[in-house]
């Protein structure tokens, strides 16, 4: 830019009429400040995002502080915040674990189906279908679990309590309504499934074709090809996909709030009982005030920290994988 200006100045005003120069410089000045404003705004927006994330932590901490100084007897349950938060943390982990145990194998299977098994021409359509699962709002899943899934599963739970009741997980008496932590876990699994599927599918599709063809040329069956070429390549990706699914399952609110009739911590998955942090907040926040409000916000802070840790680990695995991947 400067060189252009420098070259034009002497030629444009031989008689000292600065018309061309002024328009050029005037425009230039406007352009320069435009540049500065625009890049400043862009930088500001970037920093604002960091500030927001930081703000989430700070505001939650400020609002949660009263809990620390409070008399343990005033906290719900009467035994301090630790005793209050522990059962719902465990409940959250149980529900998310059920979801992940169900959704990970299923998600990998569906991803393999779309990437390696389905007829090429239909694979895209099948992919869209599974992505549709992610488009359905969580409250609709909650309503579905509440009205359709829970009554059906109640029958299964009755059978489980009768025949497998000696296992603590299936200890009776089974819930008559089916609104248990296992039902909540199953609904969560359905919601997590599209996340795990779409991420693993992307990674399966990136498997070097040469590796696959080499395996097939050696006489490997399709299963052996997948085990030798696809899965080793995709291992880190699958792990991080499952972690991201875990993050979603830990923080999901509505499905649990509607599907689970919560209560005290129990080992049995087919009785009503247990509660998750997110559902505890959603169910109690509208009526909460004072110390109870701080309690719930503190619970939210705990949830935030847990999901943040899970997400950071997942992202870290993905970025490591990207650096060392053999694809490029």
């Amino acid at each position: 830019m400067t060189s252009v200006r420098g070259a034009q100045r002497p030629t444009s005003d031989p008689k000292g009429t600065p018309v061309a120069t002024t328009t050029l410089t005037r425009r230039d000045a406007a352009g320069k400040s435009g540049d500065r404003v625009f890049s400043g705004a862009a930088l500001g927006a970037g920093i604002l995002i960091l500030v927001v994330l930081f703000g989430v932590a700070v505001f939650l901490i400020i609002q949660a502080l009263p809990v620390l100084g409070a008399d343990p007897a005033d906290i719900t349950g009467g035994e301090g915040f630790g005793a209050y938060i522990f059962p719902i943390v465990v409940g959250t982990v149980i529900a998310a674990a059920i979801a992940l145990l169900l959704a990970t194998p299923l998600g990998i299977g569906v991803a393999l189906f779309i990437s390696h098994y389905a007829p090429r021409r239909l694979a895209m359509t099948f992919g869209y279908l599974v992505d549709l699962l992610a488009a359905i709002p969580s409250v609709v899943y909650g309503a579905w679990g509440y009205a359709v899934l829970a009554p059906r599963l109640a029958v299964v739970y009755g059978w489980l309590a009768e025949n497998l009741g000696w296992i603590p997980l299936f200890a009776g008496p089974a819930s008559q309504t089916g609104k248990t932590i296992l039902t909540a876990g199953i609904v969560l699994a359905v919601m997590v499934l599209p996340i795990i599927t779409s991420l693993s599918r992307e990674i399966f599709l990136q498997t070097p074709t040469l590796h696959e063809e080499a395996a097939l040329a050696m006489g490997a069956t399709r299963l052996e090809m997948i085990r030798m070429a696809v899965l080793p390549f995709a291992r880190a990706g699958i792990v991080s996909a499952a972690m991201l699914g875990l993050g979603r399952a830990l923080g999901e609110t509505m499905a649990v709030a509607l599907v689970l009739s919560g209560g005290a911590l129990t080992a049995s998955l087919i009785q009503s009982g247990n509660q998750t942090i997110a559902a505890e907040i959603a169910l109690n926040f509208p009526e909460a005030y004072g110390l109870r409000l701080s309690e719930l916000i503190a619970a939210g802070l705990v949830l935030f920290v847990i999901t943040l840790a899970v997400n950071i680990i997942a992202r870290w695995i993905i970025s490591r994988h990207r650096e060392f991947s053999g694809a490029n």
């Binding site: 927001v52 993050g247 923080g251 997400n311």
Partner: peptide
């Protein structure tokens, strides 16, 4: 990381 914030935590914020 922000894409993984639970929606209820965003509400609490």
């Amino acid at each position: 990381v922000m894409t993984g914030i639970p929606s209820i935590v965003a509400g609490l914020f």
